[in-house]
């Protein structure tokens, strides 16, 4: 019950932010919500299936480029169509990638996802005519629910309709993921994370479940990636670069992968902290690196670990 209240308060605070917070801070909420969608998916793989991917920037990039390509080359501006296309393409690319990756676990899985991520990054960089190479591709302002909002000043569009659209997508994504982790499928994923050999003797298809979890996480990453485009109005290859994959793993650890909303909290703190540290000191990576070390050593359950006060469940076991 307390959890439900916290979620309601959190959602209310996000919904009220444009009314009370400065435009500057409200604009920062946009990448937060996009990353929150990505991380809800990533954590199905990380926290629930026990597989750490270092290649999910591939799917973020895929989603973002889908939107950019559709708005600039195909003259499709509907965000609903863009998100559906991103999800479909994410699933399509994830199927062969997942089929190969989920045969491996631990570091081999991580390295294989990293390798696929690098292949995609190079593809984005080199196929200039499709992707714009290192300059990237414009992501033209999408229409929302069939309403073209081109006449609106950009900031008004972003802190108004686009903001609430993102919030609605995040809400739906969270609801869907909540159902997934509390389904029979979600329980089976946890058995596989804890003890795959035992799960198999119970008749649970270990590889098959990992495969589904991977594909679902890729769909979430692609949808979140597409949401990252409109605020900047441009997508570029850094979205698909492997350090970006590392960042989202960092966000997950920061918030806590053993809790459902941990990664969402992680995304929020990461974005605001990064923004603040960058404005104060030029070497933000140094600060963040030290922070990551502290989290792994002292607080393996992340920030949510302090809230839930659970024992560090998975520390040192993966």
């Amino acid at each position: 019950m307390k959890g439900g209240l916290a979620v309601a308060l959190g959602a209310g605070a996000i919904a009220a932010a444009p009314l009370v917070a400065s435009t500057y801070h409200v604009l920062l909420m946009l990448p937060f919500m996009a990353y929150a969608v990505v991380l809800l998916g990533l954590n199905l793989l990380f926290g629930y299936a026990g597989l750490v991917s270092f290649g999910h920037a591939l799917f973020i990039g895929l989603g973002a480029y889908t939107g950019a390509f559709l708005t600039t080359h195909a003259k499709i501006r509907s965000l609903e169509v863009i998100l559906l296309a991103a999800a479909a393409l994410g699933a399509l690319v994830a199927v062969p990638v997942a089929a190969l990756c989920v045969r491996y676990v631990k570091i081999y899985f991580g390295m294989l996802t990293l390798a696929f991520g690098m292949v995609f990054y190079t593809f984005v960089l080199k196929f200039y005519r499709l992707t714009g190479g290192d300059e990237g591709l414009p992501f033209l302002r999408p229409s929302l629910l069939g309403q073209s909002l081109d006449a609106m000043p950009k900031t008004d569009y972003l802190v108004g309709p686009y903001y609430y659209y993102s919030l609605a997508v995040l809400g739906l994504a969270a609801l869907g993921m909540w159902r997934i982790v509390h389904s029979p499928f979600g329980l089976c994923l946890k058995t596989i994370r804890d003890n795959p050999a035992k799960a198999e003797t119970l008749g649970i298809g270990v590889t098959r479940h990992r495969f589904y979890a991977f594909v679902i996480s890729a769909v979430y990453a692609a949808v979140g990636g597409a949401l990252l485009g409109p605020p900047t109005g441009n997508v570029d290859p850094t979205l698909a670069y492997w350090t970006h994959s590392g960042n989202i793993v960092f966000m997950t650890l920061l918030g806590g992968f053993t809790s459902f909303f941990g990664p969402v909290v992680g995304a929020f703190v990461f974005i605001y902290l990064q923004n603040w540290v960058m404005s104060v000191v030029p070497y933000w990576r140094l600060i963040f690196g030290a922070m990551l070390a502290v989290i792994v050593i002292l607080a393996p359950d992340g920030l949510m670990g302090f809230v839930t006060r659970r024992r560090p469940a998975l520390a040192g076991r993966t």
Binding site: R179, H182, P184, L187, G203, H209, Y212
Partner: peptide, 15 residues
């Protein structure tokens, strides 16, 4: 869940 062949049910509530 495994015995009843429900391991692949994604959106059903376990509870």
């Amino acid at each position: 869940v495994a015995r009843l062949g429900r391991a692949a049910r994604l959106f059903r509530s376990l509870a």
